[in-house]
């Protein structure tokens, strides 16, 4: 665990303790389970976002994809009567295709990730609304998918399955990002794509794969969201979710310049953001201030992180310089003696 993550973990604990002290309901099983469920739901697409951010990219279409995929998934199983496992596979593949398109536009046509995914945000939202004729997609009375519902929105021993899924995804993501060659290459490409290319890394493949992973995970989270809300308003479902994801990842130490970040940090970022939401409710802060509280905390977090990094790099420079001086002094001394 990096120092940064440790700091964030401490912050999470402090906030939790304070909230619990002020309002003991925070620790009630119902509240904990609800918060955990939301952490799981938001966590899935935060991890997704992190894969793209580490390559110095950004994925703005997450919310729209959650709406589009949600609408399609519900339509597939309810109206088209496709067996749900097959429907799941179909939407995950759709996610992969969208990710591949984004990745190829970014790498092959050298378009800016912001622009590509901004267009995605607009296009997918539009398609979702058109497809449903701006109506709500949902389950009607009598539509029942007991196994699917149990799998996705059920609980085992009081623990929501969504957070379990998030946990599993996070563990795999941790291994992929921090312990595999592909992960190493993601960090290298994010830091300096050109130098990575010269080191023999297939940067196109690495970046495309990052967008594919991102969109597949987004599609997965879309299924969870669809089953959680059970009815999808295509014009508002998933609005701003990409920004939640980006915020949580940044709070967790991912840099939008690429090449920095840890999965542990992103997980803690998601937890902190959801706790803040919960805190607003529990402490009786007007819920209209919700966004303001979140923004404030992220800003403070980023400023602190930035100051710590500056201090550290200054110290490192001073150390390198004094080492250099010492070695040169020794050289000069030797030269003087030999005269």
């Amino acid at each position: 665990m990096q120092k940064k993550d440790l700091g964030l973990a401490v912050l999470v604990l402090v906030v939790a303790t304070v909230v619990a002290a002020i309002n003991p309901r925070f620790l009630s099983p119902i509240n904990l389970a609800n918060t955990a469920n939301l952490i799981g739901l938001y966590g899935l697409f935060t991890i997704a976002e992190a894969f793209v951010i580490v390559t110095a990219g950004i994925e703005l279409s997450v919310g729209s994809v959650i709406a589009l995929v949600g609408v399609l998934f519900v339509d597939l199983i309810v109206v088209q009567e496709v067996p749900w496992p097959l429907a799941m596979i179909i939407v995950l593949i759709l996610g992969a295709v969208l990710g591949m398109i984004h990745g190829l536009l970014v790498t092959r046509l050298k378009l800016q990730p912001f622009v590509v995914t901004l267009c995605g945000l607009l296009i997918y939202r539009g398609i979702a609304r058109f497809y449903t004729k701006d109506g709500t997609a949902g389950f009607s009375f009598g539509d029942e998918f007991p196994l699917l519902e149990w799998l996705v929105s059920g609980r085992t021993g009081g623990v929501p399955h969504s957070i379990m899924a998030f946990g599993a995804v996070a563990v795999v993501a941790w291994f992929v990002l921090h312990r595999t060659v592909f992960g190493r290459h993601l960090f290298a490409v994010g830091k300096n794509a050109e130098a990575a290319h010269f080191a023999g890394i297939n940067t196109t493949r690495v970046i495309v794969l990052a967008y594919v992973i991102c969109m597949v995970l987004t599609a997965l989270s879309a299924i969870f969201f669809a089953m959680y809300t059970r009815s999808i308003q295509p014009s508002s479902h998933g609005n701003f979710y990409e920004l939640y994801g980006i915020a949580a990842a940044v709070l967790g130490g991912f840099s939008l310049r690429g090449g920095e970040g840890s999965v542990v940090g992103a997980v803690l970022g998601v937890i902190l953001l959801q706790m803040l939401q919960n805190l607003v409710n529990l402490l009786g802060i007007p819920s209209s201030l919700n966004f303001a509280v979140m923004g404030g905390v992220i800003l403070i977090g980023v400023i602190t992180d930035n100051q710590v990094a500056r201090y550290r790099s200054r110290r490192q420079q001073a150390k390198a310089l004094s080492a250099l001086e010492t070695s040169m002094r020794a050289e000069l001394l030797a030269a003087d003696r030999s005269k």
Binding site: N192, E194, G200
Partner: peptide, 20 residues
Amino acid sequence: LNPFTNLDVAANVLLGREKT
């Protein structure tokens, strides 16, 4: 020079030829 400051020395030296 464009070393990857986010990676350690060994990772830089063997970048693109990592051991698994």
